[in-house]
Amino acid sequence: MISKSRLTAFAAVLLVGVVSVVAAGCGSSSDDTGSTGASGGGEVLTVGSDIPYPPFEQGKSGSYTGFDIDLMEAIAGKIGRTAEFQDTSFETIFRDVAQGKFDAVISAATITPEREKAVAFSNPYYLSEQAVLVKEGSDIKSLEDLSGTTVGVQQGTTGQELAKEEADASEVRPYPEGPDAVNALKAGTVEAVIIDAPVAANAVEKSGGIEIAEKVPTEEEYGIALAQDETELLDEINQGLKEVQEDGTYTKIYEKWFKLEPPKAIFSASEAAE
């Protein structure tokens, strides 16, 4: 039964894919807005995000919250749009925004040269650190202690690269979602998890029994991703981000979600990039 329904779902996805590709191929005019779920008007801004990824994105459909969500709503407000969020898978998120499935993506996504080949990024809106998350009282105190251990990560994230390249782990387990990796840590099937620091901090606060062994600065910058030909929208979003930072909304949102002052560097980062 299960496999049948999965097959049906797969067929449906395939069909939708084929139809949309065919439609795109046949259509003579390429539609710039290309948003799904939003009908007409320039009002709605469709935003893709891989939810949950607390505290960046969390909550139920229709009432998503989180740092990314609040920030995106604030930016959308500045540019006269209403953000409408769609939960999606991180693996395909850049492809989908490039193909016009969403107008924009905000999903704690690190700006990398590789990703920039596929999509355009806004100015950085967040500077990230990775954290090595372990069980309370673990012998693992730093990245170096991960030698020979089993490390959980979220599939397709910077943490996975770090675990593979920096930590000499004997096994790296890529889980589909961050919370799955944290669950595995709590259950004891992995000895450490390398994951974005805010996610780690949130997990420590919410679940207990785990702690952050070490924070690893990555000089990673998060950006909002758009299709490469959406230059106008990109400018608008950058302007919106700047305004949100200048009027103090950014700091409020940051403190609400991370219980910390935002690093000064983030303001200069978004300035410098202009």
Partner: peptide
Amino acid sequence: KDTTLVSVVALGESVLVGREVLAE
């Protein structure tokens, strides 16, 4: 076919490997 579902707990079977390549 359902052995692929074990990928959700990070077993490195074919679909998980395929999705790693997709992420890359």
